[in-house]
């Protein structure tokens, strides 16, 4: 995973609540067996709308998505994160993320920045009124800045630490291998195996 420090880019408003992962990438696009190549399926049902951010001249190359509450609900598909990243999105800002989406995003280096809904409303207005305004997302200080505006965001400490340092989860876990082995030896015999 690449390190994430401060990201600057354009932002796009997504004025919808409950954007579920079926909306982010429909199941028909989930048949690939690689982690790339999902950009074409991103927001598939909405991308024919000329007003949708992907088609909007001010927002088509946005890297920060400002979304309504309950973003990423539904299916656990990590393809939703890969599709957003394939399109170039590096940060999703929302006042509420579904748990699995938030976890998937952090593990892939897509920053799920949690803010109050009034921050979302403010950013929506700002990016719509000032076309092409640069938004800066600072993971060190957990702050979003745009023009004169600045707001704090929340991200899980562990996710922040791993993103700042670009660490691989499995390597971290394998440092506990002795403890895992000890735990395994203590598991009750009545537990099932699949073989």
């Amino acid at each position: 995973m690449d390190k994430f420090g401060i990201h600057s880019g354009k932002a796009a408003p997504l004025r919808r609540s409950n954007v579920d992962t079926d909306q982010i990438i429909p199941a028909e696009f989930l048949k690939r067996i690689t982690r790339t190549g999902f950009a074409d399926g991103l927001f598939h049902a909405w991308r024919t709308d000329p007003l949708f951010f992907i088609n909007h001249e001010d927002h088509s190359d946005a890297t920060v998505l400002i979304a309504g509450p309950d973003f990423g609900t539904g299916s656990s598909r990590e393809h939703a994160v890969w599709a957003l990243q394939d399109h170039g999105i590096r940060v999703v800002v929302s006042s509420r993320f579904a748990d699995i989406f938030r976890s998937n995003a952090g593990k892939n280096g897509l920053l799920p920045a949690l803010v109050d809904q009034d921050v979302v409303e403010h950013l929506w207005k700002l990016v719509e009124e000032v076309p092409g305004i640069e938004v800066e997302v600072d993971l060190h200080n957990q702050e979003i800045r745009a023009g004169d505006y600045a707001a704090d965001f929340h991200v899980d400490d562990h996710v922040r630490f791993r993103m700042l340092h670009g660490l691989d989860d499995i390597d971290i876990t394998m440092e506990h291998n002795a403890a895992i082995e000890e735990y395994e030896a203590s598991r009750p015999d009545f537990l099932p195996t699949t073989m």
Partner: peptide, 10 residues
Amino acid sequence: FGIGTSEVEH
């Protein structure tokens, strides 16, 4: 509980 693909790998 459900997990994402990175967690499946983990």
